[in-house]
């Protein structure tokens, strides 16, 4: 079942230096219980993408200028962008939860963990103080925090990085949302902790059945998590497909470049330099008319610079934004 259908989502920032097209016409589907990974280099607009889904873009300077986000849960299908602020507020935290990159700064330093988790439960689920407390403890247990009754009385600075991210996850999942948006949730963590958190998320997904939108720049993480993958470059999706399609048969030169830059341990690659994509991401406020990747692309031809690229010009059968895929 399709839980979320995003069509032509476009978010722009209106700054002194001009209009920044942070997300430009993003289109994708998210199925119930599945994981979509949004991959891209930093500054490509993937964080703005995830905040747009929650309608948490700071306004001004930002604004979602067009598109639709059709959300289909037990209450039927509706466009999140057409909801009133109050209706949207009831979806946040309840139907869609979100976790962030930096668990230290994302938790309020002056309130206890229990307070911050209980707050969301009390808000969306109601119930007596005792019920809220019990559910908070259950959530902390669920995310694998030992001695939850003590931990819930502690402040964020008293927990380790991994524990903080677990607490964040407990908070985001406390109302059993249909979707969890995870914005680089493991980037700030040590590699071992990173693996634990990924395991935890997969386990919780099996248990609770929520869909996950996982935003990351780390293809290693994508390989572990993704059912679907959307590759983002300079505000646009350049390639969308299943994990298999993207990893086994990448079509877009950018995707191919990204995959080549993952270190591999196969025979024959020892001692070789890791290939990188030359050049830098163009400024989002001053994008070229044609393909934004043209300047860094090996296969670039004149047409790439002169003409806007549609979603699938080569009829690959899925979104591959390239004339020569």
């Amino acid at each position: 079942m399709t839980l979320l259908q995003v069509r032509n989502l476009t978010t722009q920032f209106f700054t002194d230096e001009g209009v920044v097209k942070a997300v430009d016409g993003a289109t994708f589907n998210l199925d119930k219980g599945k994981t979509l990974c949004i991959v891209g280099e930093s500054g490509c607009g993937k964080s703005v993408m995830s905040l747009s889904l929650m309608r948490l873009i700071p306004e001004p300077p930002g604004r979602i200028v067009q598109g639709e986000i059709m959300f289909n849960d037990v209450q039927g299908e509706r466009d999140l962008l057409k909801l009133s602020n109050e209706e949207m507020r009831r979806i946040r935290g309840k139907r869609i939860g979100m976790i962030f990159q930096e668990p230290m700064t994302s938790l309020n330093p002056v309130y206890t963990i229990g307070n911050q988790i209980g707050e969301a439960i009390a808000l969306h689920e109601g119930g007596s103080n005792k019920q809220v407390k019990e559910r908070t403890i259950r959530m902390l247990e669920l995310v694998g925090i030992p001695a939850p009754e003590q931990r819930m009385r502690e402040y964020p600075h008293q927990l380790s990085g991994g524990m903080r991210q677990r607490a964040m996850i407990a908070m985001a999942l406390s109302c059993t949302p249909d979707i969890l948006i995870a914005d680089e949730p493991t980037t700030a963590l040590d590699v071992t902790i990173q693996a634990q958190i990924l395991d935890l998320m997969r386990e919780l997904q099996r248990e609770l059945g929520m869909a996950i939108i996982f935003v990351t720049h780390d293809l290693g993480v994508v390989a572990e998590m993704a059912d679907q993958i959307a590759v983002m470059y300079a505000g646009k999706f350049v390639e969308v497909g299943t994990a298999q399609q993207i990893f086994n048969d990448p079509k877009h030169p950018y995707t191919q470049g990204l995959l080549k830059s993952i270190p591999s341990f196969e025979k024959g690659t020892e001692g070789k330099r890791l290939p990188t994509i030359p050049g830098v991401v163009p400024s989002l406020s001053n994008l070229p008319m044609g393909c934004a990747f043209a300047d860094r692309c090996e296969k670039v031809k004149d047409r790439c610079r002169g003409e806007a690229v549609s979603e699938d010009p080569c009829n690959v059968g899925r979104l591959v934004r390239c004339f020569y895929a």
């Binding site: 905040l51 009831r90 994302s106 002056v110």
Partner: peptide
């Protein structure tokens, strides 16, 4: 960031400012 977290939780703007903002 924690203000963004509070908003993502679905708290009303008033509560975000009064509880999570003011105390800090």
């Amino acid at each position: 960031d924690y203000i963004r977290t509070a908003r993502a939780k679905g708290l009303s703007e008033w509560r975000v400012i009064m509880k999570h903002g003011v105390r800090n």
